[in-house]
Simulated assay, not measured.
Amino acid sequence: MPAFGQHNRLNVLAVLVVASVMFALLALPKSTVAQTNGCGPVQTPSTTLEFIQMDPMLDRHRSVRWLNSRAGGSPRYLVTGLTEYEMRASFNMRLEPREARFGRYCLTPVTVNPRVEVVKHLVYVASELERGSCEYNVVYAHEGEHVKINQGMEADIQASLDDMVGDITRTVAAMPPMSGENVARSIKRLLSEYGREFKRRLNDIDRSRREDHKRIDTPEQYDKLSRACGPNSAFDTVLPRAAR
Protein backbone atom coordinates (compact mmCIF):
# COMPACT_ATOMS: atom_id res chain seq x y z
CA MET A 1 0.00 0.00 0.00
CA PRO A 2 1.45 3.38 -0.92
CA ALA A 3 2.45 5.43 2.07
CA PHE A 4 3.52 8.95 2.81
CA GLY A 5 7.30 9.42 2.88
CA GLN A 6 9.83 12.07 3.76
CA HIS A 7 13.58 12.29 3.76
CA ASN A 8 15.70 15.00 5.33
CA ARG A 9 19.26 15.83 4.34
CA LEU A 10 21.26 17.72 6.93
CA ASN A 11 24.91 18.25 6.09
CA VAL A 12 27.64 20.06 7.97
CA LEU A 13 30.30 21.14 5.49
CA ALA A 14 33.98 21.17 6.37
CA VAL A 15 34.95 23.71 8.99
CA LEU A 16 37.57 26.20 7.90
CA VAL A 17 39.92 27.19 10.71
CA VAL A 18 41.01 30.79 10.39
CA ALA A 19 44.08 31.51 12.46
CA SER A 20 44.54 35.05 13.63
CA VAL A 21 47.84 35.23 15.48
CA MET A 22 49.25 38.46 16.81
CA PHE A 23 52.76 37.86 17.97
CA ALA A 24 55.72 40.17 18.03
CA LEU A 25 58.30 39.63 20.74
CA LEU A 26 59.68 43.11 20.37
CA ALA A 27 56.32 44.66 21.18
CA LEU A 28 54.96 42.35 23.88
CA PRO A 29 52.91 44.09 26.59
CA LYS A 30 54.48 44.14 30.04
CA SER A 31 52.69 42.49 32.93
CA THR A 32 53.32 41.63 36.53
CA VAL A 33 51.08 38.56 36.37
CA ALA A 34 53.59 35.90 37.31
CA GLN A 35 52.41 32.44 38.29
CA THR A 36 54.43 29.62 39.75
CA ASN A 37 52.53 26.74 38.10
CA GLY A 38 50.20 28.38 35.62
CA CYS A 39 49.32 31.59 33.82
CA GLY A 40 45.88 32.11 35.33
CA PRO A 41 43.72 33.87 36.00
CA VAL A 42 43.08 35.11 32.48
CA GLN A 43 40.31 37.25 31.05
CA THR A 44 37.32 35.66 29.39
CA PRO A 45 37.58 36.25 25.64
CA SER A 46 35.08 38.38 23.78
CA THR A 47 32.74 35.95 22.03
CA THR A 48 30.46 36.54 19.07
CA LEU A 49 28.56 33.84 17.21
CA GLU A 50 27.64 34.95 13.73
CA PHE A 51 24.78 32.70 12.65
CA ILE A 52 23.43 33.58 9.21
CA GLN A 53 20.02 32.01 8.72
CA MET A 54 18.29 31.42 5.43
CA ASP A 55 14.54 31.47 5.08
CA PRO A 56 13.34 28.14 3.68
CA MET A 57 12.45 28.26 0.00
CA LEU A 58 9.56 26.23 -1.39
CA ASP A 59 10.04 24.29 -4.63
CA ARG A 60 6.87 22.85 -6.14
CA HIS A 61 8.34 21.96 -9.52
CA ARG A 62 9.67 18.49 -8.68
CA SER A 63 7.71 15.35 -9.45
CA VAL A 64 7.13 12.56 -6.97
CA ARG A 65 9.37 10.38 -9.16
CA TRP A 66 12.18 12.96 -8.88
CA LEU A 67 11.71 13.23 -5.11
CA ASN A 68 11.98 9.46 -4.68
CA SER A 69 15.14 9.40 -6.76
CA ARG A 70 16.57 12.33 -4.77
CA ALA A 71 15.84 10.61 -1.46
CA GLY A 72 17.46 7.37 -2.55
CA GLY A 73 14.24 5.50 -3.22
CA SER A 74 12.37 3.03 -1.04
CA PRO A 75 10.08 0.16 -2.02
CA ARG A 76 7.94 0.84 1.06
CA TYR A 77 7.26 4.57 0.81
CA LEU A 78 6.51 7.29 -1.69
CA VAL A 79 8.47 10.44 -0.96
CA THR A 80 5.98 13.27 -1.41
CA GLY A 81 7.94 15.95 0.44
CA LEU A 82 11.62 16.59 1.07
CA THR A 83 13.65 19.09 3.09
CA GLU A 84 17.31 19.78 2.36
CA TYR A 85 19.55 21.76 4.69
CA GLU A 86 23.24 22.58 4.54
CA MET A 87 25.48 24.96 6.44
CA ARG A 88 29.06 26.15 6.24
CA ALA A 89 31.15 27.14 9.25
CA SER A 90 34.42 28.85 10.04
CA PHE A 91 36.24 29.43 13.32
CA ASN A 92 38.34 32.43 14.24
CA MET A 93 40.18 32.71 17.57
CA ARG A 94 42.80 35.28 18.51
CA LEU A 95 45.41 34.69 21.21
CA GLU A 96 47.93 37.28 22.33
CA PRO A 97 51.09 36.73 24.39
CA ARG A 98 51.86 38.76 27.48
CA GLU A 99 55.11 38.87 29.40
CA ALA A 100 55.09 37.23 32.83
CA ARG A 101 58.64 37.59 34.14
CA PHE A 102 62.19 36.51 33.49
CA GLY A 103 61.63 36.48 29.73
CA ARG A 104 58.73 34.03 29.90
CA TYR A 105 55.27 34.54 28.48
CA CYS A 106 51.65 33.62 29.05
CA LEU A 107 48.78 33.65 26.55
CA THR A 108 45.61 35.70 26.68
CA PRO A 109 42.52 34.60 24.72
CA VAL A 110 41.20 37.83 23.20
CA THR A 111 38.38 36.83 20.85
CA VAL A 112 36.49 33.72 19.80
CA ASN A 113 34.39 34.38 16.71
CA PRO A 114 32.82 31.40 14.91
CA ARG A 115 30.64 31.95 11.88
CA VAL A 116 27.90 29.59 10.76
CA GLU A 117 26.06 30.23 7.51
CA VAL A 118 23.07 28.29 6.21
CA VAL A 119 23.73 27.84 2.50
CA LYS A 120 20.71 25.71 1.61
CA HIS A 121 17.24 25.36 3.09
CA LEU A 122 14.88 23.94 0.48
CA VAL A 123 11.45 22.43 0.97
CA TYR A 124 10.07 20.30 -1.86
CA VAL A 125 6.41 19.34 -2.22
CA ALA A 126 5.52 16.97 -5.05
CA SER A 127 4.33 18.90 -8.10
CA GLU A 128 1.39 16.50 -8.52
CA LEU A 129 -0.21 17.87 -5.35
CA GLU A 130 -2.49 20.85 -5.91
CA ARG A 131 -1.83 23.81 -3.64
CA GLY A 132 -4.57 24.04 -1.01
CA SER A 133 -5.59 20.39 -1.29
CA CYS A 134 -5.72 18.19 1.80
CA GLU A 135 -2.74 16.18 0.62
CA TYR A 136 -0.69 19.29 -0.10
CA ASN A 137 -1.45 20.71 3.34
CA VAL A 138 -0.48 17.44 5.04
CA VAL A 139 2.87 17.29 3.26
CA TYR A 140 3.56 21.00 3.74
CA ALA A 141 2.81 20.82 7.49
CA HIS A 142 5.08 17.81 7.94
CA GLU A 143 7.95 19.51 6.16
CA GLY A 144 7.35 22.51 8.40
CA GLU A 145 8.23 20.33 11.40
CA HIS A 146 11.58 19.56 9.78
CA VAL A 147 12.15 23.26 9.14
CA LYS A 148 11.56 24.01 12.85
CA ILE A 149 14.15 21.40 13.82
CA ASN A 150 16.70 22.91 11.46
CA GLN A 151 16.06 26.43 12.71
CA GLY A 152 16.54 25.30 16.31
CA MET A 153 20.22 24.64 15.72
CA GLU A 154 21.31 28.20 16.44
CA ALA A 155 20.46 27.96 20.15
CA ASP A 156 22.24 24.60 20.40
CA ILE A 157 25.38 25.99 18.73
CA GLN A 158 25.40 29.05 21.02
CA ALA A 159 25.13 26.89 24.15
CA SER A 160 27.93 24.62 22.96
CA LEU A 161 30.09 27.63 22.11
CA ASP A 162 29.62 29.12 25.58
CA ASP A 163 30.82 25.84 27.08
CA MET A 164 33.81 25.74 24.74
CA VAL A 165 34.84 29.30 25.69
CA GLY A 166 34.93 28.21 29.34
CA ASP A 167 37.19 25.33 28.36
CA ILE A 168 39.50 27.66 26.41
CA THR A 169 39.79 30.01 29.39
CA ARG A 170 40.59 27.18 31.82
CA THR A 171 43.12 25.59 29.45
CA VAL A 172 45.03 28.81 28.85
CA ALA A 173 45.00 29.67 32.57
CA ALA A 174 46.52 26.29 33.45
CA MET A 175 49.38 26.61 30.98
CA PRO A 176 52.78 27.37 32.55
CA PRO A 177 54.72 30.44 31.43
CA MET A 178 56.75 29.59 28.35
CA SER A 179 59.85 30.81 26.65
CA GLY A 180 59.48 33.28 23.79
CA GLU A 181 60.53 30.70 21.22
CA ASN A 182 57.58 28.48 22.17
CA VAL A 183 54.86 31.15 22.00
CA ALA A 184 54.10 30.96 18.27
CA ARG A 185 54.10 27.17 18.36
CA SER A 186 51.67 27.12 21.31
CA ILE A 187 49.33 29.59 19.65
CA LYS A 188 49.29 27.56 16.44
CA ARG A 189 48.59 24.35 18.39
CA LEU A 190 45.69 25.87 20.34
CA LEU A 191 44.14 27.35 17.19
CA SER A 192 44.30 23.96 15.51
CA GLU A 193 42.93 22.07 18.53
CA TYR A 194 39.98 24.38 19.09
CA GLY A 195 39.23 24.60 15.39
CA ARG A 196 38.85 20.80 15.45
CA GLU A 197 36.87 21.01 18.68
CA PHE A 198 34.43 23.48 17.15
CA LYS A 199 33.94 21.17 14.17
CA ARG A 200 33.41 18.20 16.51
CA ARG A 201 30.75 20.08 18.46
CA LEU A 202 28.95 21.04 15.26
CA ASN A 203 28.97 17.41 14.16
CA ASP A 204 27.54 16.37 17.54
CA ILE A 205 24.73 18.91 17.14
CA ASP A 206 24.19 17.67 13.60
CA ARG A 207 23.80 14.10 14.84
CA SER A 208 21.33 15.27 17.48
CA ARG A 209 19.28 17.09 14.82
CA ARG A 210 19.26 13.95 12.66
CA GLU A 211 17.81 12.02 15.57
CA ASP A 212 15.11 14.68 15.99
CA HIS A 213 14.24 14.29 12.31
CA LYS A 214 14.06 10.53 12.65
CA ARG A 215 11.59 10.83 15.52
CA ILE A 216 9.01 12.41 13.22
CA ASP A 217 9.86 10.14 10.28
CA THR A 218 8.59 6.77 11.48
CA PRO A 219 6.46 4.10 9.76
CA GLU A 220 3.67 4.90 12.22
CA GLN A 221 3.79 8.59 11.36
CA TYR A 222 3.90 7.85 7.63
CA ASP A 223 0.86 5.60 7.94
CA LYS A 224 -1.04 8.23 9.89
CA LEU A 225 -0.28 10.93 7.36
CA SER A 226 -1.15 8.72 4.39
CA ARG A 227 -4.65 8.24 5.84
CA ALA A 228 -5.15 11.89 6.85
CA CYS A 229 -7.16 12.72 3.72
CA GLY A 230 -9.44 9.71 3.78
CA PRO A 231 -9.77 6.76 1.39
CA ASN A 232 -8.89 7.11 -2.28
CA SER A 233 -6.82 10.23 -1.65
CA ALA A 234 -3.99 11.30 -3.93
CA PHE A 235 -1.63 9.37 -1.64
CA ASP A 236 -3.35 6.18 -2.86
CA THR A 237 -4.18 7.11 -6.44
CA VAL A 238 -2.43 10.01 -8.20
CA LEU A 239 1.00 9.73 -6.58
CA PRO A 240 1.56 5.97 -6.98
CA ARG A 241 0.63 6.24 -10.65
CA ALA A 242 2.96 9.22 -11.15
CA ALA A 243 5.83 7.40 -9.45
CA ARG A 244 5.73 4.44 -11.82
Rank of each mutant, 00 (worst) to 15 (best):
M175L: 12
I216F: 11
R207S: 13
H213D: 15
V123G: 04
V183P: 00
R244C: 07
Y85G: 02
C134A: 02
E154Q: 10
Q158K: 10
L191A: 13
L49C: 07
S46T: 15
L95F: 02
F23G: 05
Q53H: 12
R76I: 12
E96L: 05
A27S: 15
S192K: 13
G73I: 07
Y77K: 04
T169M: 00
A184F: 04
R185L: 14
R62D: 08
E96W: 00
T36N: 01
A19T: 09
M22A: 13
Y136K: 08
D162H: 08
Q221I: 15
P2K: 00
H7C: 10
E193Y: 13
C229L: 04
P75C: 06
V125F: 02
M57W: 00
R88W: 05
H7S: 07
K188I: 14
P2T: 05
Y140A: 11
V125Y: 03
P29D: 10
M22K: 13
A126N: 04
V139H: 04
E193G: 08
I216E: 11
V21K: 06
A27E: 09
L58M: 02
V118Y: 01
S179R: 07
E99Y: 00
Q43R: 07
K199D: 12
S192L: 06
R76P: 01
C106Q: 00
N37C: 07
V165F: 02
T111F: 04
Y85N: 02
T80V: 13
L58C: 01
R115C: 11
